[in-house]
Design a protein around this nucleic acid. Structure first.
Lengths: 115, 115
DNA sequence: TGGCGAATTGAAGAACTCTTCAATCCTACG
DNA sequence: CGTAGGATTGAAGAGTTCTTCAATTCGCCA
């Protein structure tokens, strides 16, 4: 097949790059969940949720199964929790760094510093 | 501050969602590296690399320092390796899944199956 | 000071992704 | 059969992100 590897990695991260999709993945870590419940937990229009679920499905990170009139989603496997934990660790540092910068900025505003 | 959390997480992943940026992060795991070397390792126009480096800088995941005429980039901290490892584990499964599908598809083409 | 190499910036158009709408599909039930 | 609820799809416009170009900055050295 030989799809450029960095391309595939980038696509994977882009697939995660949407608040609703992240939220869905976090919710599914508690086990399979019907669309109806996702819809109740995440406040969003049904068609918008469907679009985001379609993105997740296409990537293969979740699977959907229909049980009579409801559709149930679940994680396709893979340790998504570990990934999100690693991301959270870094993000925490980055946000802390930004607060530091912000504090510095406020400081220099008060003292009238140009730098 | 209270920036919506899922928004911040999504932005973080979007920041990772570009082949050149992933490649830079992987290269920087071996230690600080001047732009010139990044440029040699990743084949891309200088201004394009600069744009991608600017995205990484803005997010705070890397820092740049100028030593005379060269600029050296390095990871700002944070366990980026762990994150990329977790991503690779999942991605491996997903790509395996896709190959299975592809194999099925090829199979049905040969047998003339419509489904 | 002038010019050179290294890197960055700004801006413009192409390419992609998001949100929303109306239309559709599917299953169950009256 | 017809209709209703649950979910998905397709398409259009708004909004973002990418790539590329020319222009700029910065430090150096002749």
């Amino acid at each position: 097949m030989q799809v450029p590897l960095y391309q595939a990695k980038a696509e994977f991260f882009r697939m995660l790059g949407h608040p609703v999709r992240i939220r869905v993945l976090e919710l599914l870590q508690g086990g399979p969940m019907p669309v109806r419940e996702l819809l109740a937990a995440i406040e969003i229009e049904p068609s918008n949720l469907s679009q985001q679920l379609a993105v997740l499905r296409r990537s293969g990170i979740v699977t959907a199964t229909r049980s009579s009139s409801t559709v149930v989603y679940e994680l396709a496997g893979g340790d998504v929790a570990e990934l999100l934990r690693a991301a959270r660790r870094i993000l925490t540092e980055l946000l802390a760094g930004q607060e530091d910068l912000l504090a510095e900025l406020r400081q220099s505003e008060m003292t009238g510093d140009i730098a």
